[in-house]
Design a binder for these strands. Structure first.
Lengths: 353, 353
DNA sequence: TTGTATGCGTTATCAA
DNA sequence: TTGATAACGCATACAA
């Protein structure tokens, strides 16, 4: 059935030993140049490709990085992924992408899989910080390097690349206060997930610094899905919640929240303004302007790869509590003429060469 | 460095032969139940996980599907990918995602990689139908099943799952004509890429059937990138192109085109209406309504997997020129309250169980 | 300069 | 019922 050309096939073809072929193809100095050339020529002609599996069975290195992300529909992740695979390529690594869908069991399966195929490292955007912590640690024990990005895992020493989420949460909330809003809601998960907790803390801090009393009714706990945030906010509004701004944990939450607001016949941004993290495309479907934290996803992905590959090449530990920070900025995303960044960047690169 | 628990480790621990452990863990009937239980218990305790590489070195099957897509920023692809990995999981396959970025060299590298790690099958959204055709064929010769989706490869017999692109192109153009437009532009690649050619043919057909003469100046050739379509349309508008509608090949093309139109101070949809394929999020950034072909990406992904796995399980050829068609519909995507489909679906599923 | 032997982790085919 | 051995494709230390 499967019939890939192997070293043995080439050896038989030429009438030499497989090990000779092996050495020749890796330009080992103890094979004559003439023989090397000949073998290389024949190998090419036969369409030979080394079997990575067999190779990494011996070398214990696969040159593969695994990337697990929550949800592809969130443009923050697809942009970051772009940064990841471009940086990985630059370092000679192949990167493969998996999705966990905010589901711990899924995440577990994907992680086991990555371990099973012996990836060298994993770029992790964890579902939460507890459920699979044992597994992260086991994989680390097996020698797989793990770097967290976007979401760090607090009760561990895994290196990470994130923005300063607390500060971002503070600034985002502050923008709304500066826009004259005082009845500001926070919606999202706010515990068990470090990034969420940090953003929430930033929100609290902004209220405090502006002498706005914290109203617990304005803190809505949701999962990071469209439905969850939509339902919880819609219900709150039906029950007469009095708000003029909403800070959302992320793209899907903001999309659900925005829908709930519009469905409740409030105007955005007139009655209620919306803020979120990630500057995600999907929210634009609502046709409304919104505040957002641009997390520079492309750069975040790049830096995560660099951190990971650093550990790999230097044989360094990836549990030094190194937390790299990426710059962020608060933007006001309006509808209308837009440019798409990474594409520009690609174009530049192509022109340069 | 790497220290995963192996069969040998377990064998040594218990004092039996590795082969006994192997058999026990696979419930071979020729190991006593008592021994099986004991071995399984110890294996679990030691955190044993079979090495997929070693396994597939023997079995020639990896239970991995490779998915290569053009660009993650296009929501059509991320939705379809969702359909793919959910269907793959259902059939017990792991799916890994790679991106070729509309670059043939990239595509080649990714394909070689998938072959190197012995994936069982590939779900391909090809860059074009010529550059890497030799490679598709070589991989097929190596026994890797290939199924095309969204973009079929005309000069080959590879099975595929697509919409009826010509019909969709016809219907989309027709919608614009029904909306009173007569000066309709087509922008995108229009040759060498079957899907593009088909859509273009549909456009031509619609003009013809409505007795609108074909104006070659209204056919703009671009690559499938933001920059390319933006630049070419912007220039055309500066040069006085007189149009009242634009049919775009895909999401990035439409996004570039829309920007060019707005930057040229035309109104959408007042002066010019926009049509595209895929109902992609990114266009919403423009805050304008547009016509779109909903290609049911989730379903397309699912069907592609089913077609592929069918070939794998039945040991059937994947080059029978079987072309599965997915229903499409023309929608008018307005800004405002929106629902997100796949999430609803997930929710349903969760509720059912 | 080339060939031989051994091992990576697993499975399969024997023999015990 | 269990153990020994060869093989998968490749790399490497060592012998020729």
């Amino acid at each position: 059935m499967r019939k890939k050309v192997t070293l043995k096939d080439i050896a038989k073809e030429i009438g030499v030993d497989p090990s000779t072929v092996s050495k020749a193809l890796r330009k080992s100095s103890d094979i004559s140049v003439a023989m090397q050339d000949k073998i290389k020529r024949i190998a090419d002609k036969m369409g030979y490709r080394p079997n990575l599996l067999a190779k990494s069975l011996i070398s214990k290195r696969s040159n593969i990085l695994g990337v697990i992300i929550p949800d592809l529909r969130i443009s923050f992740f697809s942009e970051a992924t772009r940064g990841i695979y471009e940086a990985a390529t630059k370092h000679g690594f192949e990167s493969i992408l998996l999705v966990h869908d905010e589901n711990p069991e899924n995440e577990r399966r994907k992680l086991e899989f990555l371990s099973d195929i012996n990836v060298d490292g994993i770029l992790l955007n964890a579902v939460n910080e507890t459920t699979n912590l044992d597994l992260y640690k086991r994989l680390h024990g097996e020698g797989i390097k793990i770097v967290c990005w976007d979401r760090k895992i607090e009760n561990s020493k895994f290196n990470s690349v994130t923005i300063d989420d607390k500060r971002a949460g503070f600034e985002l909330t502050n923008k709304m206060i500066q826009a004259g809003r005082r009845k500001i809601m926070f919606i999202g998960p706010n515990r068990g997930i470090p990034v969420a907790k940090d953003r929430f803390d930033g929100y609290l801090m902004a209220l405090e610094m502006n002498d706005i009393p914290i109203d617990e009714k304005l803190v809505l706990e949701t999962r990071r899905t469209f439905e969850s945030s939509h339902n919880v906010l819609y219900r709150a509004l039906q029950n007469g919640a009095d708000i003029d701004a909403v800070v959302c944990m992320g793209g899907l939450v903001a999309f659900g929240a925005g829908n709930a607001i519009l469905e409740s016949n409030y105007n955005i941004p007139g009655d209620i303004i919306l803020g979120e993290f990630g500057d995600n495309h999907i929210i634009s479907r609502l046709g409304i302007p919104f505040y957002s934290v641009n997390q520079n996803p492309y750069e975040m992905g790049e830096k995560a790869v660099n951190l990971l590959i650093d550990c790999l090449n230097e044989e360094k530990e990836c549990t030094n509590s190194i937390h790299v920070e990426v710059e962020h900025e608060i933007i006001y995303r309006n509808v209308g003429v837009q440019r798409i960044k990474p594409d520009d960047r690609n174009l530049e690169r192509k022109h340069k060469k």
